[in-house]
């Protein structure tokens, strides 16, 4: 991959910001607009930017495909697991009230976990998609 100086400098500058914004959206989700879907996509956008600028090898070096695959599955597991946990705690499926001592804290905890799961899965899947499309282009 040819190096584009301006692109790589701008990218290096932007990527941390985008990542930070992703985390903001992720954890602010239970108070305001935001949540796992959006945060996951924003996170993925940062990684995809890295992929486009620095190439597949560089990106895969710090986010390997195997990790992404596990991440994609793990997110779903967290989501469904929270539901099952609330079952085990004596409530209904996805009834967050029972997850902590009082209902409000329970709702907080529950939504946080669920959104985390969603975020991980969405980010992982988006990055995986980008990886596989990128790969195809080079082989063909």
């Amino acid at each position: 991959m040819k190096s584009h100086l301006i692109l790589s400098i701008v990218a290096k500058f932007l990527i941390p910001l985008v990542l930070l914004f992703a985390f903001y959206v992720q954890f602010h989700g239970d108070f305001g607009p935001g949540g796992g879907f959006q945060a996951g996509v924003i996170f993925a956008a940062a990684v995809i930017l890295h992929l486009l600028v620095f190439g597949h090898a560089a990106t895969e070096h710090f986010i390997p495909t195997a990790v992404l695959k596990i991440g994609a599955a793990l997110g779903v597991l967290i989501y469904a697991g929270v539901g099952v946990a609330s079952l085990l705690a004596g409530g209904r499926y996805l009834d967050y009230d029972v997850l902590a001592d009082n209902a409000v804290a329970g709702q907080h905890l529950g939504i946080l976990l669920v959104e985390a799961g969603v975020g991980i899965t969405v980010a992982a899947v988006m990055i995986l998609l980008a990886y596989s499309f990128q790969q195809r282009g080079h082989d063909a």
Binding site: K69, I70, A72, A73, L74, G75, V76, L77, A80, G81, G83, V84, L87, R92, Y93
Partner: peptide
């Protein structure tokens, strides 16, 4: 657990799917 069976029916394969993909 018995009252939760309707949801477990759907959740069980949903939980198993990601595990399956990791095997």
């Amino acid at each position: 657990m018995r009252e939760h069976l309707p949801i477990l029916l759907v959740v069980l394969p949903m939980l198993a799917a990601p595990i399956c993909s990791m095997l």
